[in-house]
């Protein structure tokens, strides 16, 4: 069953159209990867899903309801959570406060402890640094914090915008392993990546986005095997 469905959505920046009647869906329990070059519209897609950008056409269905007109802060309560491009760590808040912010909208404060435990289990580093200001963390630690914070909302759908950006290979492997683990614990994931190789290996299904158009879709393996994709994104 589709947890998230974009039905021919278009998004404009002023008069420039960034997304052209784009349709994708993410089923419950899946990891879906959206790959594309710089400027393809990946971040635009994520921000439109999260509600930070309005649609000029089309609709977004989430968890059985139309959220096209739902305000961004209410979409979080509906069960989606975005770790944004650039991480968006609150620099003056400690690691612990940043994680707390992730749970800002939650009413069920009693089950929050379980999520703190889960995040610290996934990212032991964050526990060591819990009193440190977010702005003083390394890039990799900030990315862990961004993902951990998104998980604190206990989302049905986790949206990750280029979690591997700017990270060293061992950090990237760790992040991808954790995404897999989170998914196995029951969270659906939509992953945006330029790091196509690993994103396609991890994904159940994948889409290729080129200048605002979806040009290919299929299972992770199918998309990875496509000659055009191999030439453009996998350096083969």
């Amino acid at each position: 069953m589709a947890l998230l469905e974009l039905n021919s959505i278009s998004v404009h920046y002023g008069r420039i159209q960034a997304l052209h009647e784009m349709s994708i869906h993410v089923d419950e329990g899946e990891i879906v990867s959206l790959i594309g070059a710089n400027g393809a519209g990946k971040t635009t897609t994520m921000r439109a899903i999260a509600g930070l950008l309005g649609l000029s056409a089309g609709s977004i269905q989430f968890d059985g309801g139309d959220v096209s007109k739902t305000k961004a802060h209410l979409r979080v309560i509906r069960g989606m959570s975005l770790a944004p491009e650039g991480r968006g760590i609150f620099p003056a808040m400690t690691v612990l406060e940043n994680l707390d912010m992730g749970a800002f909208a939650r009413k069920d404060k009693s089950s929050m402890d379980a999520d703190f435990a889960r995040v610290f289990d996934l990212f032991p580093r964050l526990k060591e640094r819990s009193k440190q200001a977010g702005g003083t963390l390394s890039g990799g630690e900030q990315q862990m914090l961004a993902i951990g914070r998104a998980l604190m909302a206990h989302p049905k759908l986790l949206l990750l915008d280029e979690p591997s950006m700017g990270l060293a290979p061992q950090f990237i492997r760790q992040i991808f392993r954790i995404v897999k683990e989170v998914n196995e614990q029951g969270t659906t994931v939509l992953l945006v990546e330029q790091n196509a190789n690993q994103a396609l290996k991890l994904a159940h299904r994948a889409y290729v986005l080129e200048t605002g158009h979806i040009t290919r879709e299929g299972s992770g393996a199918e998309v990875a095997a496509d000659p055009a994709v191999r030439a453009a994104y996998l350096g083969a």
Binding site: H73, F90, M101
Partner: peptide
């Protein structure tokens, strides 16, 4: 307070605050 945290979050980064469920 919770409202105070929301104020600080919006002051630091309004878009990200919204992503946390803060009603800007």
């Amino acid at each position: 307070t919770r409202l105070g945290r929301g104020i600080r979050a919006v002051a630091q980064d309004p878009d990200t605050a919204t992503l946390m469920g803060v009603n800007k």
